[in-house]
Amino acid sequence: MKPKFRHVALFGKHHTTISGAALESSRRVLDDVAHFLSRQGCDVVLDPDTALYAGLSQYPSMTIAEIGAQCDAGLVIGGDGTMLGIGRQIARYGLPLIGINQGRLGFITDIPIDKYQETLQPILNGQFESEERCVLQAKVLRDSDCVFDALALNDVVVYRGGTSGMVELRVEVDGRFVSNQRADGLIIATPTGSTAYSLSAGGPLMHPSIGGWVMAPIAPHTLSNRPIVLSDSSEISIEVVSGRNASANFDMQSLASLLIGDRVMVRRSEHRVRFLHPAGWNYFDTLRKKMHWNEGGS
């Protein structure tokens, strides 16, 4: 049987914090998965960073734009952080992504590394569950000029400097004043990001099909300042009123330094990320496993 996905791009972890035995193990996994895909009748390509990192010279490499235009699916090997980075780059092309978990939690990289062959083969042959996740579009405006522009699949976080006290932020939603918040920071999270930083700040879990954002303060000065769920059709403005060395980060992977008066504008991106999961997958199974629900019960 010919696979449904004939042209598959392979993405792996390639950051500099991996070394020694972990580096060799990660390269070996990439090589094993590439050989497996080839045996299934897939044409395998690598993105340039993965090709350089893994040293798999027998496979061609393509730019992200070429992968988006020519490939049928992307296979990401790593943790959720790796998937977030690839998801942001590939969102504009609509390429479906499959995640093999080589990290820890694995909310969006849900195929166990030790079971990838028996799990991946049916997906390649067209047996899978498909879902789309929304993406945040964020801009930093300084004197009406855009000085930074980024996508985020998890969250946009505005927070205080490492050595300063609280930051004061003026928050507006669709041009309407909400509040001046004094806190360590503020999180705007997608449903995907509701299981990340927002959760540790007291935010709710949100099902991925819900059209909304979580706005969650980080250690607020006023304890009545609680997380709130907003429509994902809203545009959120966060202006830095006071506080030294404030910053904004996007999925914890890209960073912008902020000045007093800067505004971070957050809205829904026109792009979405499509994930493919094993047949029978559902969101609650993932939550139950990753959140350790029902453990120790009868």
Rank of each mutant, 00 (worst) to 15 (best):
T222G: 13
T63Q: 12
V241I: 08
F107S: 03
T192C: 09
G85R: 13
S269G: 12
K115Q: 14
M83Y: 12
H292E: 11
T192W: 14
H15A: 13
V167R: 04
R274K: 09
S269E: 12
I123T: 02
L97T: 08
G211M: 10
R39T: 12
G87V: 04
L97H: 08
L136V: 08
V241F: 11
L120Q: 00
I90F: 13
V140T: 10
L199E: 08
Q70M: 15
F11Q: 03
D184K: 02
C42Y: 03
D47F: 02
K2G: 04
L120V: 00
G165A: 10
Q117R: 07
A246R: 14
R142H: 09
V178C: 15
Y159I: 14
E168P: 09
V167C: 05
K4Q: 02
S234P: 07
Q40W: 01
V171G: 13
V264I: 11
S233W: 12
L37N: 00
C134G: 14
K289D: 13
W213A: 08
H277N: 03
S19H: 10
C42P: 04
K2C: 03
N245A: 06
G99N: 06
A196P: 13
S198Y: 10
N249Q: 10
V8W: 04
G175A: 04
C146W: 14
L169W: 13
V135A: 02
W213I: 09
M265V: 11
G162M: 13
S298E: 08
D47V: 01
G175Y: 10
N125Y: 02
G193N: 11
F107W: 05
M265N: 13
D155Y: 07
P191Y: 01
H15P: 15
G68L: 05
L258P: 09
H7D: 03
F107P: 07
G162C: 12
D32E: 06
N180A: 05
Q137D: 04
L97M: 10
V135N: 03
R27S: 00
H221F: 12
E66R: 15
D251C: 09
G162K: 09
S130C: 05
G185W: 11
L276M: 04
D285E: 04
L258K: 11
G79Q: 11
E172Q: 11
L259E: 15
I113W: 10
S19T: 07
T286H: 06
S234G: 04
P60Y: 11
G41S: 00
C146L: 06
G296R: 01
A279R: 05
P122L: 00
D145N: 09
D155S: 03
H207G: 03
G85H: 13
S233C: 07
W213M: 10
N101Q: 07
L258W: 14
N125S: 01
G94D: 06
L141S: 05
T82E: 07
L52A: 15
G202R: 03
F284M: 02
N225T: 08
Q117L: 06
D31I: 00
L136E: 12
I77M: 09
P278Y: 02
